[in-house]
């Protein structure tokens, strides 16, 4: 029996030697800001929802188009991806325009205001939200034609929104020119 045990130990020792040092594997570090599959999936979904909404709009089905655009707001993007803010803000601008076209001014204003508040940074898309906000104020002013004071206030608010949009555009454009 001792010979059997000795044989087993010898076999084990040999196997240890033969598999002593596996070849090192090379892995590249994954940068956190790399365009990855998750980002592309989220962008692809947003693109499809936009086109779906466009089809509904061409068919006159504004309610379905609004529902499709709302889906974009709940898409899961990679954390800290700047594209997420831009895509959501652009979807909000379209959503607000659709609601505005339906005469649903309060909800349109809510969509725009939330977008501005939730934005992490200034961008042309935030500026665009201010532009749409100005349009909503203009529409309110038109509805309040009988109440001159309120209509004037809405018009002033519209001007402020357009100014804010222009200010952001100017600042960003300057930054872009400097970076080039």
């Amino acid at each position: 029996m001792k010979y059997i045990i000795l044989a087993v130990l010898l076999i084990t020792a040999c196997s240890c030697n033969s598999s002593s040092e596996p070849p090192p594997t090379t892995k590249t570090a994954e940068p956190a800001d790399a365009i990855d599959q998750n980002l592309m999936i989220a962008l692809s979904k947003a693109k499809n929802f936009h086109h779906k909404a466009k089809v509904y709009m061409s068919d006159g089905n504004t309610a379905a188009a609004i529902a499709s655009v709302r889906e974009i707001l709940s898409l899961q993007f990679p954390p800290n991806a700047p594209e997420a803010d831009d895509v959501r803000n652009d979807a909000r601008a379209l959503l607000a325009k659709l609601l505005l076209g339906q005469g649903n001014l309060d909800e349109a204003m809510t969509v725009v205001t939330e977008g501005i508040a939730q934005s992490q940074r200034k961008s042309f898309f935030v500026a665009n939200l201010y532009t749409v906000k100005g349009e909503i104020h203009e529409a309110r002013a038109a509805q309040l034609a009988d109440d001159k004071a309120k209509a004037t206030a809405e018009k002033h608010a519209a001007i402020e929104a357009y100014d804010a949009s222009n200010a952001i555009d100017t600042e960003l454009q300057k930054q872009l020119m400097e970076s080039k």
Partner: peptide
């Protein structure tokens, strides 16, 4: 061009 980044440079200011 392989990094996730803001998309402003693709469009510039968005006209009304």
């Amino acid at each position: 061009d392989q990094r996730s980044r803001p998309t402003d440079s693709l469009f510039g200011p968005i006209a009304r």
